[in-house]
Design a protein around this nucleic acid. Structure first.
Lengths: 127, 127
DNA sequence: CAGTCGCAAAACCATTCGGTTGACAATTCG
DNA sequence: CGAATTGTCAACCGAATGGTTTTGCGACTG
């Protein structure tokens, strides 16, 4: 039985936001933008990748609506746009009862680290 | 060789969690699991994709630590594991001040929807 | 025992992703 | 003007994604 598409209510926006957040480079860029506006060169500087690669990451953030670009002369100035983060947060809040009910967050973080497959040979990197 | 990647503090767990959440099928599966345990067949049923495809989605959720598998006879029973969601929520909370300061959440959701696929018509917001 | 059910594993395929290099456009500055 | 700055675009590449079909295996059932 084929039935209809049933689920998946066309949440393309959330797809793009979570996909944008699924890359450490892009998350680091957002952190950087949290301190203020940056142009592409400044955003790309901390990473050892090529300039166009960083530029592509910026475009992914842009497509997700997480940053907004303002062209100023030859410099493209990026500003963080928190709205999609609020949307992602709203999605997560649906499950808030689950983790506040059943686990404490500290244990939660450790379990997430463990289940990811990485070898936690070093100490905790987060408090 | 990774060679001390300057930034990007090795948040593989967060990578996996956000990547798992970046797919509408997997998000729908989590919603389903929020109502209780399900085996793979029940989880796969709402979608028109093949069984192995759904099974792969489950494995992605599993790798992110978002679900736990318990084999019961020939049935693999999945249970939601909220810990990684708490980790993701914790990451997002860093930016909470941004959207609570500058936008109200309702507007935020609308903008997130809009900014996804369409070119922002630039309504012009400030402050 | 034979068959069906629930699921995994493997092989394969098209697309996307993240990265590179090279060429080029536009703006600023000497 | 000519050169440097800032950044895009296009082509290309290897690896990962997301999907398929086929095969097989352990667990139940008639």
């Amino acid at each position: 039985m084929v039935s209809q598409p049933t689920e998946v209510p066309a949440t393309q926006a959330l797809d793009d936001v979570f996909h944008a957040l699924a890359d450490p480079t892009r998350r680091a860029m957002l952190r950087s933008l949290a301190s203020g506006e940056r142009n592409i060169g400044e955003l790309a500087a901390p990473f050892r990748m090529s300039f166009p690669a960083a530029s592509k990451h910026v475009r992914v953030l842009e497509r997700a609506g997480l940053v907004r670009r303002r062209i100023e002369g030859r410099s493209h100035v990026l500003r963080i746009e928190p709205a999609p983060l609020a949307a992602a947060n709203e999605w997560l809040r649906f499950y808030e009862g689950f983790w506040t009910d059943r686990l404490d967050v500290l244990d939660a973080l450790l379990r997430a680290e463990d289940a990811a497959g990485t070898k936690p040979a070093n100490g905790g990197e987060e408090t």
